[in-house]
């Protein structure tokens, strides 16, 4: 009985080993960050949006830099609450290659309220206008704020839905994407 059980266990382990080799990812079935999608482990979907100053910003042009994409609106209380932390972290880390793209979900906001909002919180990072909900669609925006931490290679390291984000959260994630 005992030896039969041992043989049974040995067969299970042998089958397990065979399965590991049979199911090895030889054809790159894992994403490896090659497919664009708004999820951790995927390539950040590319977009081109206009800034408040009329300049165009294309996400893929920032490859090589760590990027935080933050979707927000002026009427959203948690967006307001996390803006000072975002600004503080931006000031500390921009010299090390951090870029923050604050995408205003203009399709559901009042564009005229933005300058007063930026002045109130003293925001100096680029603010992009998502007038046609292009970024909202690409990033499957379901809730504001939504934040995407993007590594230098363009892959998403982490997604934080909702807020406000604590300053320590921002710092730990920025350190991660700056590596």
């Amino acid at each position: 009985m005992q030896s039969k059980q041992r043989i049974f266990y040995a067969v299970i382990l042998a089958l397990g080993l065979v399965w590991i080799f049979v199911s090895a990812d030889r054809d790159g079935a894992s994403t490896n960050g090659l497919i664009p999608a708004p999820r951790a482990g995927f390539l950040a979907p590319d977009f081109t949006l206009e800034t408040m100053d009329g300049d165009m910003v294309k996400l893929s042009d920032l490859r090589g830099q760590a990027v935080i994409v933050n979707l927000w609106a002026t009427w959203c209380p948690p967006c307001k609450a996390e803006m000072p932390a975002l600004q503080k972290v931006y000031e500390e880390y921009k010299s090390r290659g951090l870029v923050i793209l604050a995408i205003n979900s203009t399709v559901q906001d009042d564009a005229q309220a933005i300058p007063a909002f930026l002045a109130e919180y003293g925001l100096t990072f680029p603010v992009l206008l998502d007038v046609n909900n292009e970024a909202g669609r690409l990033y499957q925006l379901r809730s504001l704020p939504s934040t995407f931490f993007i590594r230098r290679d363009g892959t998403i390291s982490e997604v934080v839905i909702g807020g406000p984000m604590a300053e320590a959260l921002l710092r730990t994630r920025v350190e991660e994407i700056l590596k």
């Binding site: 604590a166 300053e167 320590a168 710092r171 350190e175």
Partner: peptide, 11 residues
């Protein structure tokens, strides 16, 4: 992550 929390202990 002590450095991050030292900068903002309330976190």
């Amino acid at each position: 992550n002590l450095a991050a929390f030292m900068s903002s202990p309330a976190s």
